[in-house]
Simulated assay, not measured.
Amino acid sequence: MVKLAFSTNAYTRFDLPEAVRRIGRHGYDGVELLGDEPHAFFPWFGDDDLADVREALDETGLSVSNVNANTATGYYDDAPPSSFFDPTIVTGDEDDRVWRVEYTKRAIDLASAVGAPAVCVATGRPLPGTPPERAHEYLRESLDEILDYAESEGVDVGIEYEPELLVECTDEVLELIDDVGRDSLGVNLDVGHAAVYGEDPAEAVRRCAGHITGVHLEDIVGGRRGKHYHRIPGEGDLDFGAIFDALDDVGYDGFATLELYTYPDEPDRAAERSREVLERYVD
C-alpha cells in the first residue's frame, strides 16, 4: 500500500531537524529531506548535522522517503531565481558539471545514511551554447558516474521530469531509462509536472510502472495544461482518486510525498490539510 510522506522543502523557515519534527506531528509515515539550502546543502552538511537529523528521525519514527537533490541553489551567491537548477548534470562547463555530479553523490551518501531508498535529480535546462543533443551526451556521462556510485550504496536514482527541462515528459524519461539500461535508474514521478505538460497523471503512473522510485504530489489549477504552481490537494483540479487507483493498479507500494514548497509561510497548515484530504486513499 502507498504511504504518505511530506517534504521538508515546505519548511525552509526552519532548520532540518525542526522540519522533521514538525512533519512528525501531522501523522505522516515518511519525510523527504531537501538536499539544498537551508537544509542539507552538502558542502556544509557535516557529521554533526547528520547526527541531529538522525535524532529527529528517531524521535518521530519517520522513514525517509527520498532525498531531493533536484536543486543546488547554495552554489551561487548572486544567481537569479530562475537558476535554481544550475549548475546541472548537463551543463557545458566541465568544472560545474563535475561539481554537480559530486553533489549528487553526497545526496546518495545521505540517503544511504538514513535508509532512504532513492534520491531524485532533475536534468535542468541546456544553457545557451549547449544544444540539446550535446546536453544529452553530458547527461549520459553524468549518469554513468552517479549510478555507479548509487549502486555501490544500494540507492536508486529517480529522474524528475518537468516541462521546459531537458527531460520534460513521460516519453522522454522512459526513453532515457531504456537507453541507459540500468535497474538503479528510474523516475521520481511528479504528478503535477505530468499534468502541466498535458499528460493524464494516472496514465503517466501506468506508463512508468516498474520504474517509479518515488512520487511527488501536489494539486494544479487547470489540471492538464494548468499553471505550474504547487497547491494543497483539493485546491486544484487533479483527480487524486484516479492517481491512487493507478498506483494500486501497478503495484506501487512506496511513498507518495507531498511537495509543497509554495507554502513557506504556513507549512503546518499545508501538511495537516494535505493529510486530511489524502488519507482516504491510503487507509
Rank of each mutant, 00 (worst) to 15 (best):
L4A: 02
L4K: 03
T8S: 12
N9A: 03
T12A: 12
D15K: 13
R22V: 02
G24Q: 12
R25E: 15
R25L: 14
V31F: 13
L34S: 05
G35R: 04
A40Q: 09
F41P: 04
F41H: 14
P43E: 04
W44E: 14
G46L: 10
D47I: 10
D48P: 06
D48L: 14
D52Y: 10
L57E: 03
A69I: 11
D77K: 07
S83D: 13
F84A: 09
I89K: 13
V90M: 09
D93G: 06
A107V: 10
A113E: 15
P117K: 09
A118P: 04
A122E: 11
P126Y: 01
L127P: 05
T130V: 15
P132L: 06
R134I: 14
E137Y: 09
S142N: 09
D144F: 08
D144C: 06
A150F: 03
E153I: 05
V155W: 01
E160K: 06
E162A: 13
P163Q: 13
L166Q: 00
V167S: 04
V167F: 02
D171F: 03
E172P: 00
V173Q: 00
L174Y: 00
D183L: 08
D183E: 15
D183Y: 12
L185I: 03
V187A: 03
V187E: 02
L189A: 01
H193T: 03
H193G: 06
H193S: 14
H193R: 10
A194W: 00
D200F: 02
D200Y: 01
R207D: 01
A209E: 13
G214N: 14
G214V: 03
G214P: 09
L217S: 03
L217W: 05
D219P: 04
G222W: 01
K227M: 13
I232M: 03
E235P: 05
D237M: 02
D237A: 00
L238S: 08
F240Q: 04
I243S: 00
I243K: 00
D248Q: 11
V250W: 11
D253V: 13
L260Y: 01
Y261I: 07
T262I: 07
T262Y: 08
Y263C: 05
D265P: 01
E266G: 12
A270L: 02
E276H: 07
V277N: 03
Y281H: 15
